[in-house]
Write a protein that binds this DNA or RNA. Structure first.
Lengths: 240, 240
DNA sequence: CGACTGATTGAGATTGTTCAAGTTCGGTGG
DNA sequence: CCACCGAACTTGAACAATCTCAATCAGTCG
């Protein structure tokens, strides 16, 4: 939650000047010009390196973060340290459990990210007044619920091989907010440990499954993180 | 989705006359008297036996069901038949994915249930107009999301023993909508197969874990379904 | 060039599954 | 009231998937 030198630099970027797709599909697209202007005064666009914790589990929340680029991971930890990643958030999602004063989970930058931080009270006031924004947040909550439930099937019923294939497909379909379909070449936005924690597996099992996908000619891996999906159809078949 | 003779009988029960806790905490508690009266004309209270399918996966939805008593299970199935239960709904939850024309999952009575069926359009019109109801449904969605994410930790990171203990605790805390804390004696509202499908295990493993909890003196089981939690503290410790 | 971190690979231990009997429960009919 | 039946549940033994532990490899940073 510390502000680094990079953040101060990023404050120079005017919040209103960009009109990329991320803004339109996200929260900001739901706001009237005067609301946007007002919001821009209370808002800071911040760049954070991978690994930065945005909120801790059972910690007080006083702001929401709109993801502008990069991937945020949401996780929970058992007393003995076992960890489970319970969701990934891509641009233009809003990070933070609405209305909760205490965060039920940890939110952490999985990759380098750019976020737009909004004070909790500001956003909640805005939600009261703006029905379009309210509907958009309701839709995000329902979409996240759908995704969580889909992932429960993956966690509970799929084999290690199917889990890894499912994750690659998930990332391919979510990574680029402007892309229509799947991206076939991308950098994994997370470490092997993160992947294992997302899939309910160990690093070793994940690694073995990657090796198998590689030797079966379905993907290529270079520099650990760089993935090319060579045969998308076969990858989909392996998702169970 | 068929209406049985029992349902016709149940129509005699006036929808408005009961003022139990379920109504206050649920949807109906958010409605003004005239809204309630209007709703009662479009609404039917129905009893359904365990096993009745309320909506099928990828099926058109034209109504929402308010759970009045009993337990509804939500599930998804992989092509090859592997099934995962992705949520349980207790009174006074509303069953049905808001705004979706097609249900992303199957909803089925896990036990005998009483539901109150509301036409899709009627409810959605009501939500537009009534901010209290809207907030209540938003809260239900967020609560379900929290629960789904909690359960992801159970599915991904807990051992079979911890999973079974977690389920018993979940049921003990949710079964009686009027009770404050945990119920210590109850009938399981679902079969061993349902339990296995909820926990991502097989029936045999579930059965073995029940036997262990029994022989360790933490619970007693009579007639397969009737559970008494003898040592709640130890049960909680086994949840991981 | 080492030292370090993250990823891969291998071998053996463990957990949970599969398959195959039994057993109990609840209902039915004599 | 009891015998019988099918469905649901339990138990056991062998097997398979995944984990654990340990060694090795690759890339990065000082």
């Amino acid at each position: 939650m510390d502000i680094t030198r990079r953040d101060i630099h990023s404050l120079d970027i005017p919040v209103l000047c960009k009109s990329c797709d991320v803004r339109h599909k996200g929260m900001c697209g739901a706001l009237a010009p005067e609301e946007l202007l007002q919001l821009s005064r209370q808002t800071r666009q911040i760049e954070q390196p991978a690994g930065t914790e945005l909120v801790g589990e059972s910690t007080d929340v006083d702001a929401y973060d709109n993801v502008m680029s990069g991937v945020v991971k949401l996780s929970k930890t058992l007393e003995d340290g076992r960890q489970q990643i319970i969701g990934l958030q891509f641009a233009p999602d809003l990070v933070g459990r609405l209305y909760a004063s205490e965060s039920p989970m940890t939110a952490e930058a999985a990759s380098d990210i750019t976020i737009c931080r909004v004070p909790k009270a500001t956003l909640e006031r805005l939600v009261e007044r703006n029905p379009v924004l309210r509907k958009r947040l309701m839709d995000q909550a329902l979409r996240e619920l759908d995704e969580a439930r889909d992932w429960m099937v993956t966690l509970g019923r799929k084999t290690a091989a199917e889990k890894v294939a499912s994750l690659l497909l998930l990332i391919a379909t979510h990574l680029d907010p402007d892309a229509r379909g799947e991206t076939r070449v991308f950098d994994l936005p997370m470490s092997r440990l993160d992947i294992a924690d997302y899939l309910g597996l160990t690093i070793e099992t994940v690694s073995r499954q990657f090796s198998r996908l590689k030797s079966d000619g379905i993907i290529t891996i270079t520099a650990n993180r760089h993935i090319e999906i060579v045969n998308l159809a076969r990858l989909k078949k392996r998702c169970g």
